[in-house]
Simulated assay, not measured.
Amino acid sequence: MTAARLRYKVVEVAPVAEETLEKALEERAAEGWGIESVHFVTREGSHRPAMAYLFFTRVREDGGPGQPPG
């Protein structure tokens, strides 16, 4: 699948906790998004993440730029 056929969504999660991550994942999955990756941001001197960025993808419904619908 080419990148032109994909849509991307980035979700910032803070505070980072099991419940907040699960909520963000479940909400986007219900909307048809698939998880691509998770990136954690830590503060200097701390191992606990201060925030997380969740990256999601899904196939464009319109077929993408220059592509016919369907």
Rank of each mutant, 00 (worst) to 15 (best):
residue 2 T to I: 06
residue 4 A to N: 09
residue 5 R to K: 08
residue 5 R to Y: 05
residue 7 R to V: 01
residue 8 Y to S: 09
residue 8 Y to I: 01
residue 8 Y to N: 03
residue 9 K to C: 11
residue 9 K to D: 09
residue 10 V to G: 07
residue 13 V to T: 04
residue 13 V to F: 02
residue 14 A to K: 14
residue 15 P to T: 04
residue 16 V to Y: 02
residue 17 A to V: 04
residue 17 A to P: 01
residue 18 E to L: 12
residue 20 T to F: 02
residue 22 E to P: 02
residue 23 K to Y: 05
residue 24 A to I: 01
residue 24 A to D: 05
residue 26 E to S: 12
residue 28 R to I: 00
residue 29 A to F: 02
residue 29 A to R: 11
residue 30 A to G: 13
residue 31 E to P: 04
residue 34 G to L: 11
residue 35 I to P: 03
residue 38 V to H: 04
residue 40 F to H: 05
residue 42 T to P: 05
residue 42 T to G: 01
residue 43 R to G: 14
residue 43 R to I: 03
residue 45 G to C: 08
residue 47 H to L: 15
residue 47 H to E: 15
residue 47 H to M: 15
residue 48 R to D: 12
residue 48 R to S: 09
residue 49 P to K: 03
residue 49 P to F: 07
residue 49 P to L: 03
residue 50 A to S: 15
residue 51 M to D: 02
residue 52 A to Q: 07
residue 53 Y to S: 09
residue 54 L to Q: 00
residue 55 F to T: 11
residue 55 F to S: 05
residue 55 F to K: 05
residue 57 T to R: 13
residue 58 R to Y: 06
residue 58 R to A: 09
residue 59 V to T: 14
residue 60 R to A: 15
residue 64 G to L: 03
residue 65 P to A: 14
residue 66 G to D: 04
residue 67 Q to W: 06
residue 68 P to Q: 14
residue 69 P to H: 07
residue 70 G to A: 11
